[in-house]
Design a protein around this nucleic acid. Structure first.
Lengths: 162, 162
DNA sequence: ATAGATGCAAATATTTTGCCGCCAG
DNA sequence: CTGGCGGCAAAATATTTGCATCTAT
């Protein structure tokens, strides 16, 4: 293997790398979807996310901006974004219960790699993954619209401690 | 591309292809885990599964064998099997609500490819997938214990109808 | 004999829905 | 102006837990 791998590994510390601010707002605007005060708040929360959040955490963040936002609105807005393919819904292998996590959908699919012990999540992009999707698309005759890969195992740190 | 692809596509009609009967029972037995009457029933249901089932469907099947099995026992047994890595828990991209589906874990990981319109699920094995996992294991320094990939899109049949 | 399993009921957790008044476009 | 949206409360769905009893080993 060369010193410059064909894939990129990010820490997951910041989800919206190189993402222009207001992307979600602009996407919805372009689709003639109403931008209410509440939606703007939820979008802002999603766009400035530093990590994967579940509905509860998104609600908490939204409350910091506007305490009147309700949980129902958060769910309805997440559903809207999901239906438009603007965010992804994950469960990170149910490592911490059955809640769902959301993240703004970047330009390229990535793989979520989680440690089953400490729960740390890394995001990985890989050329091999793109090839795999192409192969599946071709062989199954499917026009892929969503792809989700979650991998779990013991990370190096946790193996060292054990 | 050659006429004999390096991967195998199955229809998902039968999950336990080439799986020796009683595999789950034997695995648990080898681990000195109590084989109660109820557990045997749930294991039998999982082993003879023709498709992915959720907890409700597993309970229904179990009731056909022994009407006294309770839902709680089904959940507890599924959890046991999950903890021992003997079954996989999927949500199939939430295409049909937020329930979870379970399948007996075969010798090799496979990818679930689902049509977002008709809900049909195919299972695909791929050498590329194995390579991808190796790459990730190496680069993230993780010892992989679970891998789950779910892909959604429009299948050929549904595209034709549209 | 006894650690561990089951059953029952109730509690939790998470997400969805009906209805009505309100606001973005 | 008006059709979609948000709030409220309640329902629906999915899963887990406490505790007393039973059972596989």
């Amino acid at each position: 293997m060369s010193a410059t791998p064909a894939h990129r590994v990010s820490t997951g510390e910041r989800i919206n790398d190189q993402e222009p601010a207001g992307r979600l707002q602009r996407e919805l605007g372009a689709r003639r979807i109403r931008l209410t005060r509440q939606r703007r708040v939820v979008l802002q929360v999603m766009e400035s996310a530093l990590r994967h959040m579940d509905a509860e955490e998104i609600l908490e963040q939204a409350h910091k901006i506007d305490p009147d936002i309700t949980r129902v609105t958060v769910y309805r807005t997440l559903d809207l974004l999901k239906r438009h393919g603007l965010i992804d819904e994950l469960d990170l292998l149910h490592l911490r219960g059955h809640r769902h996590y959301y993240e703004s959908h970047g330009p390229r699919d990535h793989i979520h790699v989680a440690c089953v012990r400490c729960g740390k999540v890394r995001e990985v992009e890989s050329e091999l993954y793109e090839q795999l999707k192409q192969q599946i698309s071709r062989d199954c005759g499917i026009e892929i619209s969503v792809a989700r890969t979650e991998i779990g195992g013991l990370c190096a740190d946790c193996r060292a401690k054990a």
